[in-house]
Design a binder for these strands. Structure first.
Lengths: 147, 147
DNA sequence: GGTGAAATCATCCTTTTGCATGACGCCTTC
DNA sequence: GAAGGCGTCATGCAAAAGGATGATTTCACC
C-alpha cells in the first residue's frame, strides 16, 4: 500500500530530523524519556492520522430494500413453468384466456380449431389443478405465470 | 473520550517499560535511532489501532432505495364503481368470481340460490360490458375494482 | 303511503365450457 | 428406427355459464 511506504519514508525523515535537532540545534541535554515521548507523540499522531486516512473511505453501503410503489415489471416465474410442465403454447392460450376471450375467439385469433383450444386449456387446467378458467387465471397469477 | 485516557496510560506504561528494558535488562548500548524507531513503531501501531478503533463506527450508511415488488396496497376506484352503478353485492360476487369460484360455489358460500348469483353476475356483466366472467374479471381489474 | 333501488328467486332456453378419449403429424432424443 | 413430447383435430357427453324475463321482499327516501 502506498500509505505504508509513505509512512516509512516520513518516519525515517522524522528520526533524522529529531537527531539533527538534538545534535545540531538545541544541543540541550534531553533525557531519553523526553526524546522517546516526543517520537512517540509524533508517531502516535501520525498513526492516528494514517488510521483515519485509511478508514475514511470505508463507507458501508447498506442497500435497504424499500417498498417503492413501482410498476412492477412482470417477470415470469420460469422455474414454476417448468416445474408444472407447461408448454409455450399452453402459456399463450393461458394469456388469451386471462384476457377474457372465449375458446372460439381464441381459436379464430390463433387460426386453429376450437377443439384444439379446448385441448390446450384442458391440459392447462390439469397442470394448474384448476377446474374453471377463472380458477386457472387466478392460480396462474399467483404462480407468476401471467401478469 | 475513554480511548484517549487509555491511550495516555498505555503510552506512559510503555515508556516506563522501555526505560526499564534499556536500563535494567539489556544494558546494551543502543543507538538513539534504534530506540526511537522502537518507540515510533510501537506508538505508530498503537495509533493506527486507535485510529481504526475510533473510526470503526463512522460508517456512512448510504440507503439506496431499490424498487422491490411492492404489493401496492390496493385501493378500489370508488368513482368508477359509482359511475358504473355497481352495487355492493355485485362487487362481492365479482370478487368471488375473480377468485375462481363457480356460481354454485358462490351460492353455497353466500347462502343464496344459484339463480341469485346468476342474476348478480348477469347484471355485473351488463355494467362491465363483458360477456364472460373472465372478461369481467379482466375489465374489473383494469378498472381497479378488484386487486 | 307511494316510489325506486337493491337483493332475492324462478323458469326456459342457448351457448360455453369442461372431461374423456382417440388419433395424426412433426420433431428431438436415445 | 423407436419413443416421447408437442401441437393439432375430432366426437360425444355433461356441467356450467349466460340471456331474457318476471316476480317478491325489504328498505330508504320523498
Amino acid at each position: 500500500m502506498r500509505h505504508v511506504l509513505l509512512y516509512g519514508l516520513v518516519g525515517g525523515l522524522l528520526i533524522a530530523g529529531l537527531k539533527l535537532v538534538e545534535y545540531r540545534w538545541l544541543m540541550v541535554e534531553h533525557s531519553v524519556e523526553i526524546y522517546g515521548a516526543l517520537v512517540a507523540a509524533v508517531f502516535a499522531a501520525f498513526g492516528i492520522w494514517l488510521g483515519l486516512r485509511m478508514t475514511r473511505r470505508t463507507q458501508t453501503v447498506i442497500v435497504r430494500e424499500v417498498a417503492v410503489a413501482a410498476p412492477v415489471d412482470f417477470v415470469r416465474d420460469q422455474g414454476r413453468v417448468e416445474a408444472l410442465g407447461i408448454t409455450p403454447r399452453e402459456l399463450e392460450i393461458l394469456e388469451l384466456i386471462a384476457s377474457g376471450m372465449s375458446n372460439r375467439e381464441i381459436a379464430q385469433r390463433e387460426c386453429v380449431s376450437e377443439n384444439t383450444v379446448k385441448t390446450h386449456s384442458s391440459r392447462l387446467f390439469g397442470k394448474l389443478a384448476a377446474r374453471r378458467r377463472t380458477e386457472a387465471v387466478q392460480k396462474a397469477r399467483q404462480f407468476r405465470l401471467i401478469p
